[in-house]
Amino acid sequence: MPEDWAADSHRRTRTLIPPEVTHREKWRLALDMLDSLGDWGMTPPVVADAAYGTNAHLRAGLSERGCTYVLSIRSDVSVRTPRQRPAPVPCCSLSNAVTASATARRQLRSTPPC
């Protein structure tokens, strides 16, 4: 059920939606369906688009269940192995750039020539 329907008591009354029926996020519904399939002895591979692939909760749930999956992600999402650290964020302001270049010049002056 859409979130705005779940919060609209008038609409719920008109459409006879019982109070125990609530909004659940799509990724939770997907995991619920996979759990139901698992109860029946079925463990299908999961293939999904970026709307699901960028959801860390879904990815964790799939991993916890031992699912085989291929998920699309957006181009602005970084991917790394568990052992890798995130890449450093580049300087984004003029004051950081000036400080970084001044630090680099000091390091060059203090380094002995080859």
Score class of each variant (00 low, 15 high):
residue 1 M to P: 02
residue 2 P to K: 13
residue 3 E to P: 00
residue 4 D to E: 15
residue 4 D to A: 14
residue 5 W to C: 12
residue 5 W to D: 13
residue 6 A to V: 07
residue 6 A to K: 06
residue 7 A to G: 13
residue 8 D to R: 13
residue 8 D to W: 06
residue 8 D to N: 15
residue 9 S to M: 13
residue 10 H to A: 12
residue 10 H to D: 14
residue 11 R to S: 08
residue 14 R to M: 12
residue 14 R to L: 15
residue 15 T to N: 11
residue 16 L to I: 11
residue 16 L to V: 14
residue 16 L to A: 15
residue 17 I to Q: 07
residue 18 P to T: 13
residue 18 P to M: 08
residue 18 P to A: 10
residue 18 P to W: 10
residue 19 P to E: 13
residue 19 P to N: 15
residue 20 E to A: 14
residue 20 E to N: 08
residue 21 V to E: 13
residue 23 H to I: 04
residue 24 R to H: 12
residue 26 K to A: 06
residue 27 W to T: 00
residue 28 R to N: 01
residue 28 R to F: 01
residue 30 A to H: 00
residue 31 L to T: 00
residue 34 L to W: 10
residue 35 D to P: 00
residue 37 L to C: 06
residue 37 L to S: 03
residue 38 G to K: 00
residue 38 G to N: 01
residue 40 W to Q: 12
residue 40 W to I: 00
residue 40 W to F: 04
residue 42 M to R: 11
residue 43 T to E: 04
residue 43 T to R: 10
residue 44 P to T: 06
residue 45 P to G: 04
residue 46 V to Q: 07
residue 47 V to F: 07
residue 47 V to Y: 12
residue 48 A to Y: 00
residue 48 A to Q: 10
residue 49 D to A: 02
residue 50 A to R: 15
residue 50 A to M: 07
residue 50 A to K: 11
residue 51 A to V: 12
residue 51 A to M: 14
residue 52 Y to C: 06
residue 53 G to T: 09
residue 54 T to D: 09
residue 54 T to I: 06
residue 56 A to N: 09
residue 58 L to V: 11
residue 58 L to A: 03
residue 60 A to M: 10
residue 60 A to G: 10
residue 61 G to E: 03
residue 64 E to I: 11
residue 65 R to Y: 08
residue 65 R to F: 09
residue 67 C to Q: 14
residue 67 C to D: 11
residue 67 C to G: 04
residue 68 T to A: 08
residue 68 T to N: 08
residue 69 Y to L: 05
residue 69 Y to E: 01
residue 71 L to R: 06
residue 73 I to F: 02
residue 74 R to M: 01
residue 75 S to Y: 02
residue 75 S to H: 07
residue 77 V to E: 01
residue 77 V to I: 15
residue 79 V to P: 03
residue 79 V to K: 08
residue 79 V to Y: 11
residue 81 T to E: 12
residue 81 T to P: 00
residue 83 R to E: 12
residue 83 R to V: 08
residue 85 R to M: 06
residue 85 R to C: 05
residue 86 P to K: 14
residue 87 A to Y: 06
residue 87 A to H: 08
residue 90 P to M: 01
residue 93 S to V: 11
residue 94 L to H: 12
residue 95 S to A: 09
residue 96 N to P: 01
residue 97 A to P: 01
residue 98 V to H: 12
residue 98 V to M: 13
residue 98 V to I: 15
residue 99 T to E: 14
residue 101 S to A: 11
residue 103 T to N: 03
residue 104 A to T: 11
residue 105 R to G: 05
residue 107 Q to A: 10
residue 108 L to P: 00
residue 108 L to N: 04
residue 109 R to M: 05
residue 110 S to C: 01
residue 111 T to H: 03
residue 111 T to A: 05
residue 112 P to T: 02
residue 112 P to R: 09
residue 113 P to E: 06
residue 114 C to Q: 14
